[in-house]
Design a protein around this nucleic acid. Structure first.
Lengths: 364, 364
DNA sequence: CTGAAAGCGCTTACAG
DNA sequence: CTGAAAGCGCTTACAG
């Protein structure tokens, strides 16, 4: 085999091939395939036909080098691996992101790092290398240092979290204050007079906002409130729950920040010999299949993480598209309305088990 | 603002800049930064210093266009979004992948699709566009159509699953037959004479292999076995468990294919008034924080999904590096040894709750 | 061991 | 509305 043959990059079809076949210049092909004016409709049709026939795939590298978008969005997570694995939120959120991005031919690039500094450095490098057209930043914290860092980069970035604390960056978020209000109102209407909240990572903005709303709505409705920090994770939640139950003036309802925490807490309640919801009602602010399939099913706030991901993706693509558009000014944010899903863990009249029907029919 | 200015791509430092400063040609810079022979050590040092000083970031697009690797690995998942969210495996596996890839400056690109055909089409496009240097394929099935499709592409691809059914593609997998053997031997040693297995998605290769090993080891040890297909997911597992308990000759131990399934099954057991492990022992073949924090903690096979992901990444990078190396022939596979983690859901002498100590100390 | 050139595949001004 | 050219930033043969 003569190694001198220039190895014609086996099989790659380029716009030059299409141009040749169509009897036009590569530039005309470029205009045609990108749906830009400059070629007649007839020519465009012909070029598109040939491209399809030749099975042409555009080269993202060439496009990027010539200044076009690279069609990639980045997301970096500064969380330990096992947290990512055990919390339902990220899988569903990522799935929603993917769905919208894929439909627009965008890829999602992900990276896990171990500090906010490494996260910011990743953003810097990604943009410097032109690896991404934009990024989505999650786990917003109070006075988050990543916000000014992203503002300084001046590249398309979307914050997941709010309201507030996202500076001049566009954001999407769930109205956590409203979520907490729905929960507390629900519990108050059931007659609870003393309610506890077992809270996740204290530095997250939504944790602080939930804390504040919890106190406020409790005071407003005359419901006694008690707050327990637990950090995310089953162990902290179990410990916090045990502590609460050991109190003299133990609460008759406990609200957890995540599905994983609620499951762990519910175990502790049941193990102590108390009944759910008769002795202690249980609520999770993060719904999941596990919350649904628990016995009894756990009342939850349905944030629909998938929908949340979809919204984030479409919002970020808008920002990317508007890039450089100085006239657009500060981007407005978008809010998701939370919804309360009442289940048997708070309301005895709700079905105790979603599986009853299924069981019966499978016995036949 | 005169729009005629050629807008010198604000701030981008290129190898031309470095070459100018160093008094060499761009080609020399390329050789130097890529650690290739062709420049003297002194020159190389000088060039590297200048590159660092100028904060130079190589352009992946330019590199890719010139034929170099794009430093990206792809993974596509053909699973519904909610399954991804509720199973611990993917988060941890993905984290392990990331860790190794990031250390080698590789990015991970992900996509969720809804069919094996769409998955194969994604591989084809990714390689056609040179978006990735290699892919990792998960959820191997018996006679999986994706295997011949990837073989035909002839691009670097790693199969997660086996042994067998991965054709000529390199693979990494957990020894599922051994995992099942460890579990059944453990249960037999505790005196169980009738054991059930609640199995996940039947078409997955590892499900079939676990089924076969379950029957075989049961027969070998004189333990009666009963198999229940449930599909993945809490609902199917709950139903299967209820069915098993309703049997005249009910098993004294139940082995589940995933943590989510085991949790749902354990609820059904407890709800029926039976004690774990006194009346029914429970095991999961997929460990997770939820299995650990359950009351009682659930005996599990520790596959260490994070480690699994790390292995997959390093194996795939080897394959990518060896690409075109015709001499290497068929790639050998790599196996992970499963490990049995005995907890209170099978062994009454194991601590009933990992939190007892923590609770006690926090009460002080 | 070093230097100058060609080329990767595309897009974007810029002339006709 | 169409055509020919330059350029994006890098790597790889190919001469000296």
């Amino acid at each position: 085999m003569p190694p001198s043959t220039p190895a014609p990059r086996r099989g790659r079809v380029t716009i030059a091939d299409i141009a040749r076949r169509a009897g036009v210049t590569p530039a005309a092909v470029s205009l045609a395939v990108n749906g830009r004016p400059g070629v007649s409709d007839a020519t465009r049709e012909r070029i598109l036909g040939i491209a399809k026939e030749l099975d042409w795939e555009p080269s993202p590298a060439a496009r990027a080098l010539a200044g076009a978008p690279v069609l990639t969005i980045g997301m970096v997570l500064a969380r330990p691996a096992d947290v990512l694995g055990s919390e339902a939120f990220f899988g569903a959120f990522g799935a929603g992101l993917q769905e919208v991005l894929s439909a627009r031919d965008y890829a999602l690039q992900m990276k896990i790092v171990d500090s906010p500094e490494a996260e910011v450095e990743t953003y810097r490098r990604w943009f410097a290398q032109r690896r991404v057209d934009g990024v989505v930043m999650v786990d917003l914290r109070v006075d988050d240092p990543r916000v000014p860092a992203l503002e300084a980069l001046g590249e398309p970035a979307l914050v997941v979290g709010g309201p507030g604390h996202h500076g001049s960056l566009p954001a999407v978020y769930v109205d956590d204050a409203l979520a907490v209000r729905l929960v507390v109102e629900h519990l108050a209407s059931l007659g609870h007079r003393r309610v506890a909240r077992v809270a996740g990572t204290a530095s997250f903005l939504h944790t602080a906002q939930r804390d504040a709303a919890f106190e406020a709505v409790g005071a407003e409705l005359g419901v006694g409130t008690v707050l327990q920090d637990a950090g995310y994770g089953a162990e902290g939640a179990a410990r916090a729950t045990a502590d609460l139950l050991a109190t003299e003036d133990a609460p008759s309802a406990i609200v957890f920040d995540s599905d994983e925490m609620a499951l762990a807490g519910a175990h502790v309640v049941l193990e102590s010999g108390r009944a759910i919801p008769e002795d202690v009602a249980v609520v999770t602010i993060e719904d999941s299949p596990l919350a649904r399939s628990h016995r009894p099913p756990i009342t939850a706030i349905g944030r629909s993480a998938v929908e949340y991901g979809r919204l984030a993706a479409s919002r970020l693509l808008e920002v990317v598209a508007a890039r450089g558009d100085r006239s657009s000014g500060t981007f407005e944010s978008r809010v998701i309305e939370p919804e309360l899903l009442v289940r048997a863990s708070t309301d005895p009249s709700a079905p105790k088990s979603p599986m009853d029907g299924a069981l019966r029919s499978s016995v036949s």
